[in-house]
């Protein structure tokens, strides 16, 4: 199976601090890969480089055989990378439907002049976009939610789901989920895990997951990568990782004090 995304010797320094230290990393097409590690291990920094929020200090990010490292976020998104945020970052005072419609930004074509003239093409495009957005809301388990409700008025779980719906709206090939179950109760976590599995099955997505909840990670991942102090310290199947000495040490050693 070909790799959808490959990071080569990816590195990020802030001032003198090395947050991500020459990491090699691959995500094979159609898999669910998890990224774990103690707090401050550089997971989110790594994530932010993949999505273009940070510019790597050095190294390459190859998506579909194209070097995308250092490209701006929207350019990476346009190449089929969708993401959610660790702390939910919805457009708070836009409605649920509008949030999803913003996700469709790159698929829609309407420019400034056509928008003012509201040409038949634009009318049709908007109408179809709304139909599609409602489908996505339903698919993400928001069928019962009022689509005209402001995002900030939704329940926590619904906001998480809306973030995924919004990320799906960009029609990603690779979906990056940053601690999607943080703050969820066990029941919600279970539902969400099933939902992620469904995403891969129904929509043929490749998924990269940052997650703290080991049940989620071990339950659905094909492969797990472990970060510590900005370095990749282990990589393998969930079963292999659970037995890995360095991982246990990293979690008990620094994890105990950091927690």
């Amino acid at each position: 199976m070909a790799d959808l995304l490959r990071a080569e010797l990816l590195r990020k320094e802030f001032g003198g601090l090395v947050a991500v230290d020459d990491v090699d990393f691959t995500i094979p097409t159609g898999t669910i890969v998890s990224l774990i590690g103690p707090n401050g291990a550089g997971k989110t920094t790594f994530f932010n480089m993949l999505t273009g929020v940070y510019k790597p200090t050095s190294g390459k990010i190859i998506l579909h055989g194209e070097q995308v490292g250092g490209k701006p976020p929207h350019a990476i998104t346009q190449r089929g990378v969708g993401r959610t945020f660790q702390n939910i970052r919805l457009f708070q005072t836009m409605t649920a439907l509008e949030n999803v419609l913003v996700g469709m930004h790159t698929q829609l074509k309407g420019g400034i002049v056509q928008s003012i003239l509201k040409t038949p093409k634009i009318r049709r495009e908007e109408r179809e976009a709304r139909v599609h957005a409602r489908e996505l809301l339903r698919f993400s388990g928001l069928g019962d939610v009022d689509e005209e409700e402001y995002a900030r008025n939704l329940s926590y779980g619904d906001q998480r789901r809306l973030e995924v719906a919004r990320a799906l709206a960009i029609e990603p090939k690779l979906l990056l989920l940053d601690e999607p179950t943080a703050g969820m109760n066990p029941q919600e976590t279970l539902e969400f895990t099933a939902f992620v599995a469904k995403l891969r099955a129904d929509r043929e997505l490749t998924i990269l997951l940052i997650e703290h909840d080991m049940r989620v990670v071990m339950g659905i991942s094909d492969r797990v990568t472990v970060f510590d102090y900005g370095e990749k310290i282990a990589e393998g199947t969930p079963a292999e990782i659970q037995k890995n000495e360095r991982v246990i040490e990293a979690y008990l050693g620094s994890g105990a004090t950091a927690a």
Binding site: R89, F91, M94, V102, T106, S115, I122, A169
Partner: peptide
């Protein structure tokens, strides 16, 4: 009420999230 208008409001609310949705800032 257009695609562009939604993008403007999205940028006003959260630039980072807007960029992650493919809106060229």
């Amino acid at each position: 009420d257009s695609r562009l208008g939604r993008a403007w409001i999205a940028i006003r609310e959260d630039e980072t999230a807007a960029a992650a949705m493919g809106v060229p800032l």
